[in-house]
């Protein structure tokens, strides 16, 4: 009887252990632009486990490097909110400039580079002192933000000016401005910061730059069968851990393209929800979560199989996404 009890305890401990291991799958945090909330998705159960109120019109979202803080662009509250991800409590607001849309956290884990969409400005904020360090004049409707892995270059793309603006993070000054196709939306550095990719929503392309001299080395086009090219609109994109592939959200074509990052060829198109915007990988990069603005849901893609496996209902107009372990 006693031995049996021990066995039961051991079994329970094992179950708890399994549960704890499963919880290691982490979470995906999704901003709902038209609900002023964040939906937190459990990566193991693929269900929404928390809904957290935010400021008005939350869009860009990113965790601090140690995941102790989450930064949220509350566009219509004209602030970047700093939240404790455990409690969901807003700790304070950062001075962000007007209408912050997207941002990127510098590798120094302190400087936040923020695109102020209505003001044609990029604001640099020190997240520790909560002071604005610099405001940089950029083109109209700044949106996409990226920073090189060594932290030396920050990028702002401007949607109406149709440029990638290159910021020297030492001087916080522009050192180059490169034209891309219409309505650039998102930018990412890859290959140790030697390549910069910029998506153009209306142009329907991704421009690949050689970072050393800011010259264009490739232009990636997309063609979804049965969808007019006007509706194939690349927005957010992310790379697999080995940087062999990019997943590119194609907006109202309701597809995600899988791009070979070496050959710049599109390998496959995956059907997701309506007007797919942005995406985030699970912490182990085995799953990809896309935000589908119009259908108000998130599509889960199995990265190895290149198959969508589930749709998860979230709030109205899901926009940004980030992951934490």
């Amino acid at each position: 009887m006693r031995a049996h009890g021990v066995g039961l305890i051991a079994a329970t401990a094992l179950l708890c252990g399994a549960g704890a291991a499963a919880a290691d799958g982490g979470e995906i945090w999704v901003t709902n632009e038209k609900d002023d909330t964040i939906s937190v998705i459990d990566v193991d159960t693929l269900e929404v486990v928390r809904t957290i109120p935010t400021g008005e019109r939350p869009r860009g979202i990113t965790f601090s490097k140690d995941f102790s803080r989450v930064y949220i662009c509350a566009s219509d509250s004209d602030s970047v909110q700093v939240m404790d991800p455990e409690t969901g409590e807003i700790l304070h607001n950062l001075p962000s400039g007007e209408d912050p849309e997207q941002f990127v956290l510098h590798p120094d884990n302190r400087r936040l580079y923020i695109a102020n969409e209505d003001d044609a400005i990029t604001t640099v904020v020190d997240t520790e002192t909560r002071q604005v360090i610099a405001q940089i004049d950029v083109g109209i409707e700044p949106e996409g933000m990226a920073v090189s892995p060594d932290g030396k270059i920050a990028i702002t793309t401007s949607e109406t000016t149709n440029m990638a603006h290159w910021i020297d993070t030492e001087t916080e000054q522009l050192f180059a401005n490169t034209l891309v196709d219409a309505r650039p939306r998102h930018a990412e550095f890859i290959k140790d910061g030697t390549e910069l990719w910029v998506s153009s929503e209306i142009g329907g392309t991704i421009t690949v730059f050689n970072v050393a001299d800011q010259t264009e080395i490739a232009k990636i086009g997309f063609e979804v069968q049965g969808v007019h090219r006007d509706r194939v609109q690349p927005v957010g994109f992310e790379f697999t851990a080995d940087e062999a592939r990019a997943f590119v959200a194609l907006g109202p074509s309701n597809h995600v393209a899988v791009v070979n990052a070496e050959t710049y060829e599109v390998e496959k198109y995956l059907l997701v929800g309506r007007r797919v915007w942005h995406m985030a990988f699970s912490p182990d990069r085995s799953l990809l979560f896309t935000t589908n603005g119009v259908s108000g849901d998130v599509t889960v893609i199995d990265v190895a199989a290149l198959e969508p496996i589930k749709t998860i209902k979230v709030g109205r107009f899901p926009w940004g996404a980030d992951a934490r372990p």
Binding site: A120, G139, I140, T160, T161, M163, H165, N177
Partner: peptide
């Protein structure tokens, strides 16, 4: 005005 904002980079 929109043109001028773009133009000053060029």
């Amino acid at each position: 005005e929109d043109n001028a904002t773009t133009g000053r980079f060029l």
